[in-house]
Computed example of a mutant assay.
Amino acid sequence: MLRLKNVTKTFGTQTALKDITTAFNDHETTVLVGPSGSGKSTLLRSLNLLERPESGTYDCDGIELDFAKKITKKETLAVRQKTEMVFQDYNLFPHLTVLKNVMEGPVHVLKEDKQTAKKRALELLDKVGLKQKADAYPNQLSGGQAQRVAIARSLAMRPRYILLDEPTSALDPELELEVLKVLLELANEKQSLIIVTHNLEFARHVADKILFIEDGQINFSGSKDDFFNSNDLRIKEFISAMTLDNLN
């Protein structure tokens, strides 16, 4: 389990996270929703220590950190071995084939032998429907294919949690669907996922838990059914705006 307690993060005079306390359960999919600039990505990136809050505590599956104190390189590495990030711009190595992109972390970080890493990489590429692209380079892939390779690369590191920051925001709807199907399959397999997304229809399908974040605060934490059936006026307004219910 990942636990944050009384976490605050600022950028200059702006408070991005205000005294956040929440937990993310193992083998569940938690979806973070809210308006742009609300703090969703900052919260997600804090779980991987890409952002460092100024105060509060973080229990990352037994690794206990106090953000008010210096976090060592050893602690950072330990957290990142449990929490793999998938970014909206893929971050694949352009000079490596798809297969070698997926093998890179296991070989150089986890110290797996190359044959074991290759076998696992091919299995994961097959899982995301891209085994036939093993020898291709990133510039030969569509955006949806590149994002699926990025997901396979994260899975290859055997993390407890995969963190996804707007993983389909740069894709057109058809390519987005390719990626969402892979994520839904992972959710059904009970891989622990934490996803920032604006796609509420996807959230409705995939989430075990939803956090609604606005102005750096968690204004809702609960099941997707409770979220989508909420009588809270602000939540109803947000859902209507995001799903174009009030377009007419």
Results as ranks from 00 to 15, higher is better:
M103V: 07
L92D: 03
K114V: 14
N101E: 09
L99N: 06
K119T: 14
V79H: 00
E104Y: 15
T97P: 12
M103F: 06
K70N: 07
K111H: 15
L110R: 10
N91P: 03
D89M: 05
H95L: 09
K118V: 08
E84C: 06
L96R: 15
G105I: 08
H108S: 13
T76F: 00
F87C: 04
K119R: 14
V86K: 01
Y90S: 04
K82T: 02
Y90E: 02
E112V: 04
K114H: 12
T116Q: 14
P106A: 11
N91S: 09
Q115Y: 10
V86P: 01
A78N: 04
L92Q: 08
T76R: 07
P94H: 10
V86I: 11
K114S: 15
H108F: 14
V102W: 07
K111F: 06
K114P: 09
T97Q: 10
F87N: 05
P106T: 08
K114L: 13
L96G: 12
K111G: 09
L99D: 05
V86Q: 00
T76M: 06
F87I: 04
F93V: 11
T72M: 06
V86A: 00
F87M: 04
K118W: 08
K114A: 15
H108R: 14
L77V: 13
H108C: 12
F87R: 03
K119S: 15
L96P: 10
E104H: 15
V109T: 09
T97E: 13
V86W: 00
L92A: 07
Q115R: 15
M85T: 03
V102Q: 04
I71H: 01
N91C: 10
A78M: 03
R80V: 00
V107D: 08
